[in-house]
């Protein structure tokens, strides 16, 4: 279990992490989301004692990371930036890490096999691709069989097979009762991996809730309705107090389920060409929530062009 209380980190005048309090529970995958520069990596670095909090605290298993006698056997972390000497082989990198925490050497071959690097274990890591580096980072995280696993952008640089592997791995680790905290920019991937979400923006907590709750709260689903007479259908539905958005000949209806809308339109003698429940995605919910807290926003080209005129 990871517990943050009032966690704050400032770099000069810039507040990177602002009074974050959250608990990462064991037995489930907690997704850590936020736009670039939201303070995710800084938070994760404070979890593993690399950065000192300016205020507040974060504990792992009830104590600070730095006070653990064998931290690699308690918390396994893959941090975003590479922490490898390019001239050292993968096996030697794992060897010194294992030695430092009293982890038996047999475990080295186990993790190399687990992440699929056994064939290149004796190559210098400077020659590794981004994906191979990520796999080695995951091997490092799992070396001590820790009950808490922290993965910052684990699927960066991985191919589709690798992405699926990380997803399965994260779910397996959680299934074994471990605490798993994963950050990712890939919303579609996160939607498949995480059970619970912690969302931050500009260093502040935006949401701490289950995946389903988060989507329901921040991007409502709607029913897509197409009809040869959209104007009549729109008037009918509005007349019943439903929320209708018209996009060309497509109507987006909220406030009633698809069956109810179908019955209503049918009784009025109108025809439908489409009646579809459109579930909102994690991405939609995330975009809605973080729209105001995006640090580095790109502006749509069309708006820019208009602004120039």
């Amino acid at each position: 279990m990871i517990v943050a209380r009032g966690l704050t980190k400032t770099f000069g005048a810039k507040v990177a992490v602002d009074d974050l309090s959250f608990t990462v529970e064991p037995g489930r995958v907690t997704g850590f989301l936020g736009p670039n520069g939201a303070g995710k990596s800084t938070t994760m670095r404070m979890v593993v004692g690399l950065d000192r909090p300016t205020a507040g605290s974060v504990t792992v298993n009830g104590h600070s990371y730095a006070s653990s006698p064998a931290p690699l056997r308690e918390v396994g972390a893959l941090l975003e930036a590479r922490a490898l000497h390019p001239g050292r082989t993968a096996r030697n990198h794992l060897r010194w890490l294992a030695a430092s925490n009293g982890i038996p050497r047999t475990r080295i071959d186990e993790v190399l096999d687990l992440v699929g690097l056994d064939a290149v274990a004796d190559q210098r890591v400077g020659r590794f691709s981004l994906g191979m580096g990520q796999r080695l980072g995951i091997a490092v995280a799992l070396l001590g069989e820790p009950p808490v696993v922290v993965l910052d952008e684990p699927v960066n640089g991985l191919d589709p097979e690798g992405i699926r592997w990380v997803r399965t791995l994260a779910r397996e680790l959680a299934g074994q009762g471990r605490t798993v905290l994963v950050s990712s920019h890939l919303m579609s991937e996160m939607a498949l991996t995480a059970d619970h979400l912690v969302v931050v923006g500009r260093g502040r907590m935006l949401a701490d809730c289950s995946m389903a709750q988060f989507i329901a709260d921040h991007a409502a689903s709607y029913v897509r309705v197409r009809s040869p007479r959209p104007g009549d259908v729109e008037a009918l539905l509005r007349g019943r107090g439903l929320d209708v958005d018209r996009h060309g000949d497509e109507l987006q209806v909220q406030g009633m389920d698809a069956a109810g809308i179908g019955d209503l339109v049918g009784r009025a003698g109108l025809h439908l060409h489409e009646l579809t429940l459109v579930r909102s995605s994690l991405e939609d919910a995330f975009m809605t929530l973080t729209a105001d807290s995006v640090e580095y926003a790109a502006h749509p080209a069309a708006q820019e062009a208009q602004a120039v005129r």
């Binding site: 064998a70 308690e74 030695a99």
Partner: peptide, 30 residues
Amino acid sequence: IDTVALDPDRHVPGVRRHPRAADTLHAEWL
């Protein structure tokens, strides 16, 4: 769900001791 116990030794078969200064030294040597 059966929660994994937090004893850092438990998941490393055959190891029941904390790392010592000698282990840090060995790691730096490697």
